[in-house]
């Protein structure tokens, strides 16, 4: 097993990312912990309350967090924080970073985009916003809501495009090439659309709700949690995964709760309900244990940009860094 440096953090790990050689853990108690070794962890209290969502900025220089204090914050590798947005009394629980320094977030029926210059654009919805994402080009916001996904123009004029499918859509992701939009649903299923013509893709058969998805390099596969293995849908063909069986990697008695595709190799890290973490290669399905079961569900996984370190977080705060370069 590659070398694991355990870190004991004080609360639920909501998300983890890497900032300039350090892992940044966003916790349920509102703090961000920056660390690269067990004896070198720095805590910064970023939110007055809990963190509900966290993502890395595309430039890799800051961690963006949203909290139940109604704030969206940016934290850099040195622990310096910046307030990006505040709406008192609102729980901001959806968050995404986009091109040109734009950040999208949502609370209840309202989504916002904050542009790099600080200007904020509002996107009111008729029903709750279940997720936000950006298209890779052109500054377009994608939102998931009840019975549909919507593509909004952020700065350009133009009517939003609606992609309908009955049901509550609780999360959203866009393929790296911008061709496909996929939502996670209240039902145990994903729904996808080919954006150019709205063609539907149904991805079903999960025993639990899908709460973690990750695109493999070049968007060839979409890895998903929510089953007793990672389920990977093929997206390299023109019409996406339709009519093709998914890959099932890392079959295990417990539910997969988190997935994270390696940044350059066809390898996926899979975190399970009992704390086990495996790294599995797509081609020959070879498995390497990254962390042994500890009882607590894995709640966050992230590879470093160079693909040499895997950061792991769990619901109890037990966390760790795995150096895959160490023999």
């Amino acid at each position: 097993m590659p070398r694991l440096t355990p870190l004991a953090l004080p609360a639920y790990v909501v998300a983890v990312t890497h900032l300039g050689g350090r892992a940044a853990f966003a916790l349920g108690d509102g703090s961000v912990h920056l660390g690269h070794a067990a004896d070198d962890v720095r805590a910064v209290q970023v939110h007055d309350g809990g963190i509900l969502a966290a993502v890395a900025a595309p430039d890799g220089k800051s961690l963006i967090t949203a909290g139940d204090d109604g704030r969206v914050m940016a934290t850099d590798a040195e622990g310096a924080t910046q307030l990006l947005f505040e709406k008192k009394g609102k729980w901001i629980d959806q968050l995404a970073c986009g091109p040109q320094g734009a950040v999208a977030f949502a609370s209840g029926r309202m989504a916002w985009v904050r542009l790099a210059d600080g200007q904020v654009v509002e996107f009111p919805h008729e029903k709750a916003v279940g997720g936000v994402a950006f298209l890779p080009k052109g500054l377009r916001l994608a939102t998931a809501t009840v019975d549909k996904a919507i593509l909004h123009w952020v700065t350009a004029k133009g009517a939003p495009a609606e992609l309908g499918w009955k049901g509550a859509h609780t999360g959203i992701t866009v393929s790296p090439d911008g061709r496909f939009l996929v939502t996670t649903m209240q039902e145990m299923a994903l729904h996808g659309w080919r954006i150019e013509d709205g063609k539907h893709m149904r991805m079903t058969g999960y025993p639990a709700k899908v709460k973690s998805v990750s695109w493999s390099p070049k968007g060839r596969w979409l890895a998903t949690a929510g089953a007793n293995a990672a389920i990977l849908w093929p997206f390299s063909a023109k019409d996406g995964p339709m009519g093709k069986p998914p890959l099932q990697l890392g079959p295990y008695p417990k539910l997969a709760t988190q997935v994270a595709c390696h940044p350059t190799e066809e390898v996926v890290a899979i975190g399970y309900q009992d704390g086990m973490v495996l790294a599995v290669r797509f081609g020959d399905q070879a498995e390497v244990a990254m962390r042994h079961p500890s009882g607590e569900p894995v709640s966050a996984l992230a590879w470093s940009p160079d693909g040499m370190t895997l950061a792991i977080g769990t619901e109890s705060g037990a966390a760790g860094l795995v150096d895959i370069g160490a023999a």
């Binding site: 639920y12 809990g50 509900l52 039902e187």
Partner: peptide, 23 residues
């Protein structure tokens, strides 16, 4: 989405309870 018209749920509660579990 199970074909039962009286199977209604509160989506906001599902989401808030998920958020509370982080605390």
């Amino acid at each position: 989405n199970n074909g039962c018209i009286c199977c209604t749920v509160r989506g906001d509660l599902i989401r808030i309870i998920e958020g509370l579990m982080k605390r």
